[in-house]
Design a protein around this nucleic acid. Structure first.
Length: 446
RNA sequence: CGGAGUGUGGCUCAGCCUGGUAGAGCACCUCGUUCGGGACGAGGGGGUCGCAGGUUCAAAUCCUGCCACUCCGACCA
């Protein structure tokens, strides 16, 4: 992409409403625009990142055995009356009437609808287990939206719903998501820690929040330092193997980790002092098992082997990709701007023509640009007539991982300078070596 | 929902107390000079001062109501 043809409305000054780093940087980098309280448009740069986050979420959901579909944002109130939640949900639910005065709503979540879909088609225990998910916009009319995308009213959510014959099956479904979440966040360059969350009406311990540590996190969290060095399951993890999956989950739930609501100060004090991590955290995922809470009232039943009917055991599993975009920035930025992990960077590389219009720099940039595009590397070519300093500032602000500086000084020796945004390293190399270096760089780490 | 604030050009803000022709910096447009860490000169465009009512010869400024947004607290991917 040539910057001169792109739509990248940068801001040099910080809009006064933005208090936290991710909000400030997303506005300054031209990623989002607020349209109303807690409601944002994704501008091209922000949309690219959002799509990359979604792609990774999707890949890991698919890998774990979940099946994607897409449900609508607008739902009928009747469905919610069946589950009893229409009255219970309160003012957070945006209620709408259509032209025939029918009660509709903008979905804050989809348990009812997925249960309705499931019960319409599934009759036999042989069709289980099943996990259906979608990535769709949600609306929750929060009393007080804040922190930009971190706590918006409209937000993108990946929500998955599992259906199993019994508790044992549901537990395996839960474990699949547990491991898929560990992998998803790791691929996004984040270290997530599963923390015990409020369990549903069924009880037990089958509810976890996935928290990432960040100084500007919204809640206080406590955990054992050892979590920070745990290995994340690799891409070859066998999601069908009940025992192996369980042992991974057991390991990741063996140590102390809790949000402030579930914090047990006495248990925490028993850890060696060096192991006590007390920090701020951002919730980026939440999984829970809720048994037959919806399947019973909504009659989502299957016929079992002995011919009887039984309500299915369900669980639901949420990740907020739009919040994740903000969370990644909270976890990785500096004074100059965002430092994207390569896996989600809007562009992998940028070429900065330090003398636009120069007899030597122009053709050198064009050649580099063509080579990177030829290698299918997302590249932003800054071909504007800005001064070099402004180009550096732009590249740093929007956080492109690899910056290729093409100026007369280097070119005189047949070199360009390659800078890595995440760690600030710089190298002088030939343009051909720069292309090789960037195309061969390790993705997924900061 | 309780508390505290803010609305003046695209952005950051001054002007309001003490009413009298709407300002600055950045951004934008034109020309020229520049070009390795947010350039310089000259010229130029752009604002129903959130909305409605009131007071006044006269309202961005004073009064009343409304709306929007932000921040702090209780709730949530």
């Amino acid at each position: 992409m040539r910057l001169s043809r792109y739509f990248l409305p940068l801001m040099r000054e910080t809009p006064k409403e933005a208090e936290i780093a991710s909000h400030r940087l997303m506005l300054r980098a031209g990623m989002i625009r607020q349209e109303a309280a807690g409601i944002y448009a994704f501008l091209p740069l922000g949309f690219r990142v959002l799509q990359k986050v979604c792609a990774i979420v999707r890949e890991e959901q698919d890998r774990s055995g979940a099946v994607e579909l897409l449900m609508p944002t607008i739902q009928s109130a009747d469905l919610w009356r069946e589950s009893g939640r229409y009255e219970a949900y309160g003012k957070e639910m945006l209620r709408i009437k259509d032209r025939h005065e029918r009660d509709m709503l903008y979905g804050p979540t989809n348990e009812e609808m997925i249960t309705e879909i499931f019960r319409s088609y599934v009759r036999s225990y042989k069709d289980l287990p099943l996990n259906l998910y979608h990535i769709q916009w949600k609306f929750r009319d929060e009393v007080r939206p804040r922190f930009g995308l971190m706590r918006g009213r409209e937000f993108l959510m990946k929500d998955a719903y599992s259906f199993d014959l019994d508790f044992e099956g549901a537990k395996h479904a839960y474990n699949r998501m547990f491991v898929a979440y560990l992998r998803t966040f790791a691929r996004l360059g984040l270290r997530s820690i599963p923390m015990v969350a409020e369990s549903g009406p069924i009880g037990g311990n089958l509810s976890h929040e996935f928290i990432i540590l960040a100084d500007t996190g919204e809640s206080e969290v406590f955990c054992d330092r050892e979590y920070l060095s745990f290995d994340v399951p690799g891409p070859d993890v066998d999601f069908e193997h009940i025992g192996r999956l369980q042992s991974i989950v057991d390991k990741w739930t063996s140590l102390y980790a809790a949000t402030s609501e579930k914090h047990d100060a006495a248990a925490f004090e028993k850890l060696p002092a060096d192991n006590r991590v007390s920090a701020r955290g951002i919730e980026v995922g939440h999984i829970f098992y809720f048994g037959t809470k919806y399947s019973e009232p909504m009659k989502a039943v299957v016929t079992t082997q002995d011919g009887s009917e039984r309500p299915v055991h369900m669980g639901s599993y949420g990740i907020g990709p739009s919040r994740l975009v903000a969370a990644i920035i909270e976890a990785s930025h500096d004074e100059a701007g965002i430092k994207w992990p390569e896996a989600v960077a809007p562009f992998k590389a940028t070429i900065l023509n330090l003398k636009q219009g120069g007899a030597d720099t122009d053709p050198a940039c064009e050649k580099l640009y063509a080579e990177l595009i030829g290698k299918d590397i997302d590249t932003l070519y800054d071909d504007t007539d800005q001064r070099p300093g402004a180009k550096f500032a732009t590249a740093d602000l929007i956080g492109i991982p690899w910056q290729i500086l093409v100026g007369p000084r280097g070119l005189a020796e047949g070199k360009v300078e390659v800078k890595r945004r995440a760690d600030g390293t710089r190298e002088l190399m030939s343009p051909a070596d720069a292309v090789v270096r960037i195309s061969g760089s390790e993705p997924g780490t900061v």
